[in-house]
């Protein structure tokens, strides 16, 4: 698990105010929504805001693309990394 993976997991737990979950328990490629971590549409809004606040990432206004980026920790890591390399 890279530092960025851990950082994003911590960001999610903190910004969503999650209980009963540790960063180490979030699986990198498991879905964040519905079946995996069970996050909901309000959580998605909060993750969007947290990404903006911490990494200055602005989501493209394309719901489908955003859904891809938010699909797992690995996808979020890819998003943050590609943003950093721009």
């Amino acid at each position: 698990m890279s530092n960025l993976h851990l950082e994003l997991k911590k960001m999610i737990i903190e910004s969503l105010d999650l209980e009963d979950i540790e960063a180490s328990e979030i699986i990198d490629d498991a879905p964040l929504f519905v079946d995996g971590l069970g996050l909901d549409s309000i959580d998605a809004l909060e993750i969007g805001l947290a990404l903006q606040k911490r990494y200055g990432i602005k989501l493209k206004a394309d719901a489908e693309e955003t859904r891809q980026h938010f699909s797992s920790i690995n996808a979020l890591v890819a998003l943050v990394e590609s943003h950093g390399s721009k």
């Binding site: 998605a44 809004l45 989501l59 206004a61 394309d62 719901a63 955003t66």
Partner: peptide
């Protein structure tokens, strides 16, 4: 509009 960004886009 699912995300507030979608508002901008639409």
């Amino acid at each position: 509009c699912e995300y507030t960004e979608d508002i901008l886009y639409q």
